[in-house]
Write a protein that binds this DNA or RNA. Structure first.
Length: 414
RNA sequence: GUGGCUGUAGCUCAGUUGGUUAGAGCACCUGGUUGUGGUCCAGGGGGUCGUCGGUUCAAAUCCGAUCAGCCACCCCA
């Protein structure tokens, strides 16, 4: 019995759930297309190196959350824990620097071996975008605005806020890190165990600790803003101005940091309080150093990824599926004719459902179950007279329609 | 990886201090209607009570382990 359960943290997407997912993915793709982004796919597994090198050797994802295995050639393979590294790798191996700037959209499953909880699974799905080439804040603004539009299109504008911060360039970030470490070292005895570890591995992350005592210490900490050099400051100011110009509401959050090493300058998160502890629904930032670090040509980039499961939980109802016309043959001798009519209607663009067995009552029952708009009833008597009975499932009204007029008559149910 | 809560029919859940054949609603199937759905009425199928082990004359009920789910920490979409 145990073997018939899905693996922990994985889920089947049965029809209703799948519809919600598709709705989220399709609106993301539609919005991305509106911004000139084209969809690509990269493999769901890569050589382990691709992720280990780019995500940062100390990140939690690399150290404890990757699904890594040796394949038969002895190569270490990893199921992708996120999308950007694979896209960057594809950019390099595909020689895409010739077609910059590149606007890419992707969607698909990601894998992280975490303890499941609300909004967190071991196999989950993301939609994401990457804008490669431009190093101007206008690009960041475009990408963030696209995220905001996407969420608005899903009807989530009121439930979600956009938080934004800057990590500055390398110089600014290093300067800030030193100041921050100096500050936190004075509070060594007040910081939580977790934060002491963060202080060593990634000091910026102490900033978003949930521990109450840590928060008190963090409240008095110097902010990134004070450590920004002129270029970084201007970059951030220009970005904010661009966002305002296109009407994207945001909140600056000086404590917002990103978990992955490759980010610089812009970091942003769209969050909600409707999902418990996992409130981040769409997040991203700028990663100018990533592609070079992987061995490619120096190439700037900005992007984000959004969690499809989390968004699907927030969306009220996906659009209803189209209501079909039901074909209802009565008696074996009308089967073939009904089958033919079903195809004619389908080829005319109608959604048609025809069952495989059952008497009139059963078939009407099924018509009702599939929420049919109309039923085309065909008995031997009708067939002899060269017509079918069309029943409007809403009103219950029935009309006899000659075969020759069936297509135009049914057009209203399209 | 750590902690708390939970596991009874396809789904949502009852199940009284351990005590006979484990229940309800919804869903499903059949009939009332030999060519007419949704409503209504009547009937029916379906559970080794997550799994394994223990305590007991007796376990869905108590104990242990294990698996899974949920929630939180951690981390993140």
């Amino acid at each position: 019995m145990v073997s018939l359960q899905p693996v922990r943290g994985t889920h089947d997407l049965l029809v209703d759930d799948k519809r919600r997912h598709v709705h989220v993915e399709e609106t993301a793709r539609a919005i991305a297309a509106r911004y000139g982004f084209e969809e690509i796919s990269t493999p769901i597994f890569e050589f382990t190196e691709v992720f280990a090198r780019t995500l940062g050797e100390t990140s939690d994802i690399v150290t404890k959350e990757m699904y890594t295995f040796d394949d038969k050639s002895g190569e270490s393979i990893t199921l992708r824990p996120e999308g950007t590294a694979g896209v960057a790798r594809a950019f390099i191996s595909g020689g895409l620097q010739q077609s910059l700037p590149l606007k890419l959209f992707y969607r698909g499953p990601m894998f992280r071996r975490e303890r499941p909880q609300k909004g967190r699974q071991r196999q989950f799905h993301q939609v994401g975008v990457e804008l490669l080439g431009p190093d101007k804040p206008m690009a960041d603004a475009e990408v963030i605005a696209m995220g905001a539009d996407f969420l608005a299109e899903l009807g989530l504008a009121g439930k979600i806020v956009c938080e934004i911060n800057t990590l500055g360039d390398t110089e600014s970030r290093n300067a800030y890190r030193d100041i921050l470490v100096g500050y936190f070292n004075d509070f060594h005895d007040r910081l939580s165990e977790d934060s002491l570890i963060r202080l060593k591995k990634n000091p910026l992350r102490v900033l978003d600790s949930k521990d109450e005592e840590d928060k008190a210490v963090v409240a008095g900490a110097p902010t990134m803003a004070d450590s920004l050099n002129d270029a970084s400051r201007r970059f951030f100011d220009d970005l904010l101005a661009s966002l305002e110009a296109v009407g994207v509401a945001y909140e600056i959050n000086h404590k917002l940091v990103r978990g992955l090493d490759y980010y610089c300058h812009t970091a942003f998160e769209f969050t909600t309080d409707a999902l418990g502890a996992q409130g981040t629904v769409l997040a991203g930032g700028r990663y100018d150093g990533l592609i070079k670090q992987m061995g490619g040509p120096p190439t700037a980039g900005v992007g984000w990824a959004a969690g499809v499961e989390r968004l699907a939980m927030l969306v009220d109802e996906p659009p209803a599926r189209p209501r079909p016309v039901a074909l209802v043959p009565v008696g074996a001798d009308t089967q073939d004719k009904a089958f033919t009519i079903a195809f004619e209607l389908r080829r005319a663009g109608l959604t048609v459902d025809m069952g495989y067995s059952g008497n009139l009552k059963k078939r009407m029952n099924r018509a009702n179950k599939v929420n049919a708009v109309a039923a085309v009833i065909l008995g031997s008597e009708e067939m002899e007279r060269g017509l079918a009975t069309v029943r409007d499932m809403e009103s219950g009204e029935q009309t006899e329609v000659p075969f020759s007029e069936l297509l135009p008559h049914m057009a209203r149910y399209r």
